[in-house]
Amino acid sequence: MRSIGKKLYLACCFLFLYAPIAVLIVFSFNESKNRATFTGFTLKWYASLFQNELIMRSLFNTLIVAAAASIIATVLGTIAALGISGMRKRMRSAVMNITYLPVINPEIITGISMMLLFVFIKEIFHLELGFVTVLIAHITFCLPYVILNVLPKLRQMDVSLYEAALDLGCTPVSAFIKVVLPQIMPGIASGFLMSFTFSLDDFIITYFTSGSSFQTLPVTIYSMTRMKVNPQINALSTLMFVAVLVLLLLMNVRKKPKGVHA
């Protein structure tokens, strides 16, 4: 009896979580623009989606920014984590407080504060809002996630291994590459992945730092939702959902053999 109640509760929760997504998917195949009655099957919204130049260009922009921001943030953040781990407690606390700022500040504050900076220095550096400002903003909000992922790995690492490598004749650089890097690699990888997905998904901070000439996909989606009825949004949602689903399934398949050994 209790088990039935539990299953029913889970079902209700997942119905709540997936209802809007299901609606978007179903109505992406709807013939008419009507959002409540299904009038017939069509793929025309998908066709028009791929012909929509604005959406395609925004998608391209999003991918470029996400790739560049996450790579730069991962490199800069990993080096920073190495430095931070060598700091004494007081200094480390000070740096960590700054690191937590973008994480706990409401996104809108991060967005408007960077917008203020970019508008303020516009005259000095001839920097218009656009690709560069979005990239800087994305690197900035990705950096904490890299650092917070790499630092624990560095803390778990045995320093004597690195010293042993030096004693056995490694140069500091090769000791780092051969001994330290493999041990902190999981942290670097998850930091990179988090950065990449956050960057892909970010709307609020991009919205304030992108200006009018440079749009990422979320910003374009926002302007599309302002126009009320637009079945292309449904088609886009469906494609994104399928992409995420496939990615997750692939990751799961890849992870399974590991689980057997553990």
């Binding site: 609606v23 949004i233 886009l236």
Partner: peptide, 10 residues
């Protein structure tokens, strides 16, 4: 993992 704008639009 789906953009929150799309879910809210739903």
């Amino acid at each position: 993992w789906m953009n929150f704008l799309l879910r809210t639009y739903g």
